[in-house]
Amino acid sequence: MKWLELLQVAGVTLFSAVTLVVLYSLGVRLTAIAGDAQQKSPGLMRSLAYACFAVCGAAVLFGIYLIVPYFGK
């Protein structure tokens, strides 16, 4: 039966989507904090935000890497 595979799809979808959204949201949040006037270390926040975006992008690329059969073999 394909229930297991269906469950797998559900799990993967949930995991990957939530990961991406959380990472990206954190990035957005940190960018916003970095933009605040009274913020003491905008540079740090900004670099943290960029780190979030970078990890998010890497996660996407990794996901695609997993899917392409060419790399899988």
């Binding site: 799809v9 993967v12 990957s16 989507a17 959204v21 996901g63 899917i67």
Partner: peptide, 20 residues
């Protein structure tokens, strides 16, 4: 839109991979 698209993309990619 961001959330919706992320979910769409991951759902489709995951199922494509399993041949659904």
């Amino acid at each position: 839109g961001f959330s919706a698209e992320t979910s769409t993309a991951s759902a489709i990619l995951a199922s494509s991979h399993l041949g659904f």
